[in-house]
Amino acid sequence: MNTVFYLILGSFVLWILFKQFAPLKGLRSLTPEQFQREAKGNQVIDVREVHEYNRGHIKGAVNFPLSQLQQYIDDIPKDRTVLLYCQSGMRSKQAAKLFVRKGYSNVAELRGGIITWKGQMQK
């Protein structure tokens, strides 16, 4: 009985981990150099919390915290390229899932988050 329970529990944990870290269909993961090139003329969104954004953000980025993204997502045209970033890449991937579910077809995220960024920042 215990063995079956642990097998089911282990399978469930593996499934959750897979869903969390598996590549997202339709999401491009960009290097900082690629992100910087594509940022020109496209919608750049910082999904970190306001206090993180205020400490410094990529020039031209708007702040829609992941915790509040549902409130803003319908204001962003679906025909625009959406570039997302956060601190390390985890929250931007969650935000990307939301954009893809809402029908956005051109979504990209900064691989490794802002900690990999070497471009211009502003406060």
Rank of each mutant, 00 (worst) to 15 (best):
G103Y: 12
W117E: 07
G10S: 09
I115W: 06
E33Q: 14
N42C: 04
G26H: 06
K25L: 10
Q120C: 05
V62E: 14
S105A: 12
N42R: 03
I45A: 03
R111K: 15
Q20I: 04
Q43G: 02
N63Q: 08
F99C: 00
V50T: 12
I73L: 11
L27K: 01
Q71W: 11
V50L: 11
E33V: 11
N54W: 07
K102F: 12
R91N: 03
T31Y: 06
V44G: 01
R48M: 02
Q68K: 08
K59I: 15
E52Q: 08
R111D: 09
V13D: 09
S11K: 02
V82I: 13
V62D: 12
L30F: 10
D79F: 14
M1G: 09
L83F: 00
L17R: 08
M90S: 13
D74Q: 09
Q34G: 03
V100S: 04
A61F: 04
V44I: 10
I114Q: 01
N63W: 05
L14S: 08
K40G: 06
F35K: 00
Y72C: 06
M90Q: 13
T3Q: 09
H57F: 11
T3F: 13
L7K: 10
V47D: 00
T31I: 09
Q94S: 15
W15T: 06
F5E: 07
G41D: 04
Q36Y: 12
M90Y: 13
Q70R: 15
V82Q: 02
F21S: 09
I45Q: 01
F35C: 03
C86K: 01
T116C: 11
Q36M: 12
I8S: 07
L98S: 06
S29Y: 08
N63P: 05
N2F: 09
T31R: 11
V82P: 01
K102C: 07
G113R: 01
R48L: 03
R55I: 07
K102S: 15
V44D: 01
D75V: 07
F12G: 09
I16H: 08
R28P: 00
T31S: 15
